[in-house]
Computed example of a mutant assay.
Amino acid sequence: MELGEAASSSFAWVRDYRRAAELKAMSVDEIVRKVTTGPEVWSGPLSLYCRSVVPGTQRAQALARALAAIDCGLSVLISAGVLCARLSEEAEIVTERLAEAIAAGGAPARLRRSAGETLARLGDPRDLRELVAVTAGTYDMGGEIHPNSEPAHSAPVGSFRIGRYPVVNSDYSRFIEETGRNWSSMSGRQPERASHPATDLTWHDARAYCQWLTERWRRESRIGEDEVVRLPMEREWEAAARGQQGKFYPWGNDWEPEHANGEETGFNDICTVGLFPEGRSDFGCDDMAGQAWEWCTTLWGPDMTKPDFAFPWAGDGREALEAPGNIRRVLRGGCFSSPDWKANGVYRGSLEPAGSWRGNGFRIVVSSER
C-alpha cells in the first residue's frame, strides 16, 4: 500500500469512528434516516456503533426492528443482527430478512459470509434438511478434465431425493448428542458455524448418521417405512449436480467465481450453506461445486492416483458397502480450496473410508430400500 493510500485508509477509520459516536447520540428514527439516505456513507459507522450496543436492550430491540424494515443491503442487516439476542422476536425478523437477501444473491463474498454466520448464530429459519427430487433417466458422466474422470459417457440413474444442502453442523450435532459418537471437529459446535457443512468426519461417520436419520425420520413419518436415508452413489451425485443437460458446473459450462465457495473466493474454509444461489444446480441443489468434498458410497480402490473402479461406469460391484479398510471411497464436488478444474460436477476424488478432514462433508439421499 502506498503512503497516500495508507493515510487515506487511516482517515477513513477515524471518520467512521467519529460518525459512530454521532449515531450514539441520535434517536432510532434519526439513525434510520441517516442510513436510508446515505447507506454508502453510514453503513460502516453503523457497524461500529452496533457493536457497542448491548444486545436485547430496549434500544437494541427498537433499532434492530427499524433497520430490518429498510432496504439497504446485507451490511445493514448484519448490523441489525449484532443487536439481537438469539431466538428473540427481533432475531426472527432479522433472520427472515437475511435469508431473503442471501437467496437474492449478488452480494460480495465477504458480506455473504458474514451474513451467513449472523444467520446461524441467531437461528437459521431455512429448512436445511430440504430434499429435492431427481428424476430417473440416463445422465452424462465424466469428461476430459482429468484422466481419472475419463471417458465422457452416460449411465442409468433411478429416481431419488437428495439433500438441497450438505448436512450441516446443527443437524450432525443432534446425532452426536443422541448417540455419543466421537466427533473430532474443533469448531463444529460454534454457534456461528451451525449452518456450515458438517466436516471432520469419516465415511463411516456419514453412514452412521444416515442410519440414525432413517430411524428418526420413519418415526416422524417424514419418509416411508420402505425408504432409507443413505449416501449417494457416485452416478446419483453427478446426475444431481450436472442435471439432464450434463452441465460441467452445476450452473453451466463456464466457471464463475461468484457462484461457489472455491479457491478464488478466498475463504480457505467452509461457510454457511446456500450463500451462492447463483451456483444452484438445475434440480435445486446448492453447494455442489466447492465448499466441501462430499462422500459417496462408490468404491475407488487402494491407489489414490488411479481408480480400480474407473470410468465408464459399470455394474461391477463398485457400490458394495463392505470392502477392506484400505479401499478408498469416492469424493465429489471439490472444496473451499479447490480450483475450478476440481470444483465441478465431473472431477473425481477419493479418500480412505476412515479418513477425515475439515474440507470433507456429505449430503444425504432418500430412496426406496435397495
Rank of each mutant, 00 (worst) to 15 (best):
L98P: 03
L98H: 04
A99L: 08
E100Q: 15
A101L: 04
I102D: 04
A103D: 08
A104T: 08
G106S: 06
A107W: 11
A109N: 00
R110G: 01
R112T: 04
R112M: 09
R113W: 09
R113E: 14
A115G: 00
L119T: 07
A120W: 02
R121E: 06
R121D: 00
L122G: 08
L122S: 00
G123M: 03
G123V: 01
P125M: 03
P125G: 02
D127H: 12
D127N: 13
D127C: 08
L128I: 03
L128S: 07
R129P: 00
E130A: 15
L131R: 09
V134Y: 01
T135I: 04
A136E: 13
G137P: 02
T138Q: 11
Y139A: 05
Y139W: 02
D140S: 15
D140V: 14
G143N: 03
G143I: 04
E144R: 03
E144Y: 13
E144S: 12
I145V: 15
H146D: 11
P147A: 09
N148T: 07
N148Y: 00
N148I: 04
S149D: 09
A152M: 12
A152T: 12
H153N: 12
H153C: 15
P156V: 08
P156W: 06
P156L: 07
P156E: 14
R161C: 12
G163S: 05
Y165M: 09
Y165H: 10
P166A: 12
P166R: 07
V168A: 03
V168E: 07
N169Y: 06
N169H: 06
N169K: 13
D171W: 12
S173Y: 11
R174T: 11
R174K: 14
F175N: 07
I176R: 13
I176H: 10
E178C: 11
T179Q: 08
N182P: 00
W183F: 12
S185N: 04
M186R: 15
M186G: 14
